[in-house]
Simulated assay, not measured.
Amino acid sequence: MTSQATFTPPPGARAHLLRTARGEFAVVDSPAAVGVEPKGVALLLPGFTGSKEDFTLLHEPLAARGYRAVAVDGRGQFESDGPEGDESAYAQGELARDVLAQAAALDAGPVHLVGHSLGGQICRAAALLDDSPFRSLTLVASGPAQISDSQQQRVKLLTDALRVMTAAEVWEAILAMGPPEKVGGPARGIGDINQLRTRWLGHKPAQLFATARQLCTEPDRVTELAAVPLPFHVLSGTRDDTWPVTLLDDMAVRLKARRTVIPGAEHSPNADQPLPTARALAGFWDSTGA
C-alpha cells in the first residue's frame, strides 16, 4: 500500500473549514500580498474529480495583484463532507445553493466567481439562481452544455467501475487508462501521485455519480446566462478534449464575454500555465472596477 501524503497550502495561504448556512466546506484561503492594496475576493470552484488544490499555483500571483483567493472543495469533494449514498444531495441546484452560501460566508461583498470545468457549470447555476453575491463570472475550460462524446464514454467507464469496485481499485484502473486530469482536476503541477490518490479516495461516490450524470446531460443555458447582468470571461487552453475550443469561442460571443486563450495549456490552464492564467484573471477583474 502506498503512503498517503497531504497537500501543503501555498505560501501565505491558510487551509481551514469555511462555516456557512449550508454546512462546512474545506478551503484554501490566501489574502492579498503584504504591502499590496487589496482589490477584491475570488471564489474558485474545481472540476470533476478535482479539488481546491487545483488552484494552488494561482494563489501567489493573484495575491501579488491584490486579490484574495478562496479555493473550495464542494460538497462531497475531497475534504468537504457530504452524504455517503444520497445522490440527490449532489443535484446541481443543491451544489449551486452551496456556492451562494459560501459567497455569503466570506462576508466580503460581491466576489469574483471562477469555475473550472464542472465547477463552471455549477457556478453558472448559482448565478442563475441569484447573481447578487457576485461581481463577475469566469468559466475556465467549461462549456455550454454536455461534455464531448469521447469524454462521456470515459466518465461512463469511471462510474460503471465505481459501482462494482472499491475506490482504491478504480484508482489503479484510472492510472492504467491514462492521465486522470482529462475530465476534471489536473494531475500535473499540484501534487505527487500519493497526494492525488488521497484526494480521489476522499471523494464521496454519490458525488461522483451525480456530477458525472450532470456532465453528460447538461443542457445549453448560455442564453439564460447572457441575460444575467454580470461581466463574463471565458478562459481556456488552446486545445481541449472535453469541450472543443470552437464551442468555447462561440459561447464567449453569445455571452459578450472577454475571451482568453492560454498558449501551451489544455483542459487545466490553472495547472498547465498558471502565471498567464493568473494574469488573465486579474486583468479581467481589474477591468470590472473591483
Rank of each mutant, 00 (worst) to 15 (best):
G115N: 07
S88H: 15
V99S: 01
V111P: 04
G119C: 11
A101G: 06
F78Y: 15
Q151D: 15
D86I: 02
A96K: 02
S117T: 06
L106C: 05
V99Q: 01
F78M: 05
D107E: 14
D86N: 14
S142W: 12
A126L: 05
G93P: 07
S148E: 06
Q121A: 12
G143I: 04
E87S: 00
P144K: 08
D130S: 12
A125Q: 09
G85M: 11
D98Q: 11
E94T: 11
V140Q: 06
H116G: 02
G120C: 00
A105I: 12
A108T: 04
H112C: 03
A141V: 06
A125W: 02
P133D: 11
R124G: 03
L137N: 03
Q102H: 13
A89N: 04
V111K: 01
A141E: 13
L100R: 01
G143K: 09
S150E: 14
P133M: 09
D130A: 03
A141M: 08
S148T: 13
G143D: 06
P133L: 05
Q151S: 11
A126W: 01
L106K: 11
T138C: 14
R97S: 10
H112P: 00
D81H: 13
A101E: 05
F134C: 12
G119Q: 07
A145Y: 01
E84V: 15
V114H: 01
L118F: 15
L137W: 02
T138Y: 01
A105L: 12
F134A: 09
D98H: 10
S80D: 00
E94P: 00
P144H: 04
S150W: 13
D130P: 03
C123I: 04
G119I: 00
G85D: 14
Q92R: 12
A103G: 01
F78N: 12
D107L: 12
D86K: 01
D81Q: 15
V114T: 08
A101Y: 10
P144L: 04
A104Q: 11
A125I: 04
S88A: 15
D131F: 13
C123H: 00
L137P: 02
G120M: 06
